[in-house]
Amino acid sequence: MNAIKPMKKIKKTIGILLIISMGWISLPYGHGFAAMISTEAASSASCGQQARDRIKSVLARTEVQTILMERGINIQEARKRISSLTDVEAVRLANEIDTLPAGGDGFSTIVIASLLVFFVLLVTDIAGYTDIFPFVRKVK
């Protein structure tokens, strides 16, 4: 029994040391860095906003609007839905539009318009705002 005692003592000491050190970390100093908002977080939020602005500027083009209206889509409504895209979604859609060949020909306009229709409407369809794609089951 006596042989175990020093072991217990060591364990106890280590335990107390651990309690103190952990308390030290979690008390005044530990919180310090947690409350700073990282540059990365600030960046993704502002990128999302930029992306939404870019998509809206595409939507503002009359030839794109014509195509959307031909398909029975309300421009005001589309604009509102772009605002509701998450940062990640908005950035992906904006990048997608940006990587299309830039030429002002009718073809790329149609493609851009279809991208808008497809993503803006599909994404919001899933969220249950619209019912354009009948194969999507809505959130109820």
């Binding site: 979604e89 993503f119 599909l122 994404v123 369809d125 899933i126 999507v136 089951r137 959130v139």
Partner: peptide, 9 residues
């Protein structure tokens, strides 16, 4: 953007 990934139902 696959709906199946976004919604389970």
């Amino acid at each position: 953007f696959h709906p199946a990934q976004s919604h389970k139902s």
